[in-house]
Design a protein around this nucleic acid. Structure first.
Lengths: 201, 201
DNA sequence: CATCTAATTTAACAAATATCTAATTAGATG
DNA sequence: CATCTAATTAGATATTTGTTAAATTAGATG
């Protein structure tokens, strides 16, 4: 469930040593030994924290010979700071009733599709407003086959039918739970896991 | 210290029961007994969590006779979601003790500039080695204006002064945090966010 | 293959924390 | 004052979590 994701994200940031690691990584990539030395802890402790930060998608890693360099996942950090806020307000609406899509949302959906896709089906631009962006992403993702296992190449090629910036859109697919990635293989999530735009304001 | 504040904020949100309380409160104010009943815990547990949420300024309280009604501190929630992000990037320089560039790196930089740029300032070829590639990218990006908002067209035109493959280089600008894109507008990141080549081997 | 380096795993332990039950407090009302 | 309601506190317990030392693994190099 999505709640766990948010909780784990906050757990990852709920420790001073981990925050300090992120602060150091904001300067540039660092390996485990250096982090351990700078923070006055053992390499084992760094490994422990790195695992948590990795699980929360807050850091990336790059291996060079025996050394592993950690770095910030800038994109994820910037985009998830507000996720908890979204979750709280979004789920409030769900609990508060408003189950089926109302006319207003239907009209919005049509208008977004009309305005953000060109006549030959390409994406004119990626909406900035979350709600509209989700409508576009959902529309795209609906054209993929359920249960089909896509390579990254295939996903890129698919996206490029609609927009050049496949990297951003591919990331958004994952971030908003439209797809999941395992072993470099991409696959659709069931629709009930997709981010809900119809409950947003 | 500011670090503790951020850690405590995340600790407050690092528990599923507390997130659920906030979700319920987003619907409107609720008293302890009702929250306990809805979440299947005892009133004592609600008191426990309410204390933590209160300490993190996430909720407010209002007393009416014997009943205490909890409500969201909307203002605080909305304004603090990004505090941790700010903290991480802001403190990077301070904590990190920016080591100055050593002679070896200075020489390498000169040599890369000399070898990968032609006499009329074009890029001869994009270096394959990460460290050298970052030197070239940084050199390019340093010619852009801080704070200026560039359209994609402008960025492409700029890059094409130096190399034909603007798409690749534009992507590398983003990927290595030299720039960020929002709303199809490109802008320089502050230098402390740029990928550091001087720490690479 | 022997050796070196950096990272990880394992086992142990202390500290923090989520939850409950039972007792207590704060305030309202007859 | 006696009683009722809602919240809090106190004490107990089980779980989670941060840390370390020691052993092990992964990969590079001679």
């Amino acid at each position: 469930m999505q709640l766990d994701k948010v909780v784990n994200y906050h757990k990852a940031l709920a420790d001073p040593t981990r925050i300090k690691i992120l602060i150091l990584l904001a300067e540039g990539e660092r390996n485990g030994q250096v982090l351990a030395e700078k923070l006055g802890v053992t390499p084992a402790t760094i490994t422990h924290h790195a695992t948590k930060l990795r699980e929360a998608s807050l850091i990336n890693e790059r291996r060079d010979k025996n050394t592993i360099f950690f770095s910030l996942n800038h994109y994820f950090i910037k985009n998830n700071a507000t996720v908890s806020v979204d979750l709280i307000y979004k789920n409030a609406n769900i609990l508060g009733g408003a189950e089926e899509m109302d006319d207003k949302n239907k009209r919005l959906k049509e208008s977004v599709i009309k305005n953000f896709f060109t006549s030959n089906g390409k994406i004119r631009s990626i909406p900035v407003q979350l709600k509209k962006k989700l409508i576009v992403l959902e529309n795209l993702v609906s054209r993929l086959d359920k249960g089909h296992k896509y390579s990254e190449k295939e996903i890129n090629a698919f996206i490029m039918n609609y927009h050049d910036d496949f990297a951003t859109i591919r990331r958004e697919f994952i971030m908003h739970q439209f797809m999941f990635r395992e072993n470099q293989i991409y696959e659709l999530n069931p629709p009930e896991m997709w981010a809900r735009w119809d409950v947003l304001k």
